[in-house]
Simulated scan of single mutants.
Amino acid sequence: MANVDSRDKAVHLRSPVDLFKKLLWEVDGISKTVIKNPVAQANLTIGAALSLWHLCDWLAVDLGNDGARWKAVSAHLRAKVSNHRELQDVARAVRSVRAAEQIANASKHVQLWSNVADAGVSSELRTLKGAAINLDDDSPTVKFEHQIVLIEIDGDFFSPLQISDEGADWWRGVLAAAGYDVPPGPNFIE
């Protein structure tokens, strides 16, 4: 069985740059939903992870056998990259793309093959409970619950905005090296 170009089934996505623009929209949405709607942020996080990881597929298909463009990407990444598998291997070394692969595949497939599952990565919508005391007056202690999305990578915790923004910045450089006109987009984490 041969692979068939299926961009005509991807609604408005026709190029890696289109998928990158979708990622920027998701990053922007994540930045605006941090406090207001953690469930919306969780869903945007899954979307951003899908975009971050599947940019490997879109770029590899678009570059095809264009050796000069693969060479430019390799120079930018300081690693030999000339096909889809090599691009994925290099991308996995970037913590944001590594986490995105796990979130994207787990949200799509539920179960992962043991050689694909990365025990160092997890994500969740966590409920934080606590209490606050107003020291300025005699008002009672205020109890609160708040949900946040957390992404854990090798024991360290990150917000979806940190991961998606870092990933978008990494892909911006890769796509530019491949010769694409890449929109600047938001950068929320310096």
Rank of each mutant, 00 (worst) to 15 (best):
A48C: 04
H84N: 11
M1F: 04
L150A: 09
L125E: 01
K9I: 06
G179S: 01
P140E: 10
F188Y: 15
L19F: 08
V142G: 07
K80Y: 06
L175G: 02
V149R: 10
R95H: 09
L59K: 07
A117G: 08
D28W: 03
I148A: 06
H12M: 13
A10R: 15
D154I: 03
E26P: 01
K80D: 04
L44S: 03
L52K: 00
W170K: 08
L63A: 08
L50K: 03
Q41V: 03
G120K: 13
N134S: 11
A132M: 14
W70M: 08
L175M: 03
A99D: 00
D169C: 10
D156H: 14
N115W: 12
L24K: 08
D8R: 11
K36E: 06
D18T: 08
P16E: 10
K9E: 07
V11G: 01
A178D: 08
A100M: 09
S6G: 12
A132L: 14
S51M: 10
L44E: 01
G67Q: 07
P186N: 14
V116R: 12
W113M: 08
A104S: 15
S107M: 11
P16F: 03
V174T: 10
D118Y: 13
N43E: 09
W70D: 05
L19C: 03
G155K: 08
A79G: 01
V121R: 01
W113K: 13
R126V: 13
N115A: 08
G120S: 14
S123E: 06
T127Y: 04
A132K: 13
I46E: 02
K108W: 10
V34M: 00
A177C: 09
R69C: 03
I153V: 15
W113V: 02
N105R: 13
D118G: 12
L44I: 03
S122V: 02
W171G: 01
R7T: 11
N105K: 15
D165C: 11
I46Q: 05
G179T: 11
T141A: 14
P184W: 06
V90C: 02
S122G: 08
A75Y: 05
K71P: 02
L23C: 04
D118W: 10
F158I: 00
V97T: 06
L63I: 13
L52W: 06
D18N: 07
D137L: 09
S82N: 14
L50D: 04
I151M: 00
K143A: 15
K22I: 03
A117M: 10
I133S: 04
N37R: 07
S51R: 09
R92I: 05
Q88L: 08
S96W: 00
S114I: 07
R92H: 01
H12R: 15
G29W: 03
K21M: 07
Q111K: 10
V81F: 03
V34F: 01
I30G: 02
W70G: 05
